[in-house]
Amino acid sequence: MPPPVAHILVVEDDIDHTTLIMRALEEHGITDSIARVGDGEAAIDYLEQRNAYADPQSATRPHLVLLDLNLPKYSGLEVLRYIKTSSHLNTIPVVILTTSDAETDRLRAYDEHANAYVTKPVDFDRFSAMIRDLGQFWAVWNVTQRITP
């Protein structure tokens, strides 16, 4: 019996970056179950299944969140804090995926209990490989507490 397909939530304001991530995940066969939101407020709404995401069908609980830091409305760090301080969301692995390699960002992210911090490589091949490895580890190999909503 094949393992259940992992569902990934990509929180990214840059639509083109989202496209790149989704293409990489699909091409490497990690998953095609990907949801995308463009700002921090939408991310929380999605996770809490409210407002625009009130219908549970449209907002499946993700097995992994790929979170950009620089987001409109609530920032990535604020979303991270929300998830990690929420009793029913804190088990979801959150990987920070950002272009920033500023140390302050890294430290703050880990302070808020990010599960991993990854800088987006500029090079296409490395970007593709990074998404593959990230997906492999977090969505396939890493055994998480899969809570079915």
Partner: peptide, 22 residues
Amino acid sequence: FVYTVSHDLKSPLVTIRGFAGH
């Protein structure tokens, strides 16, 4: 500003290189 250079300015670059690869 520095943050921007490392993030916001890098962001289109990631897009360009990524889509160029594609």
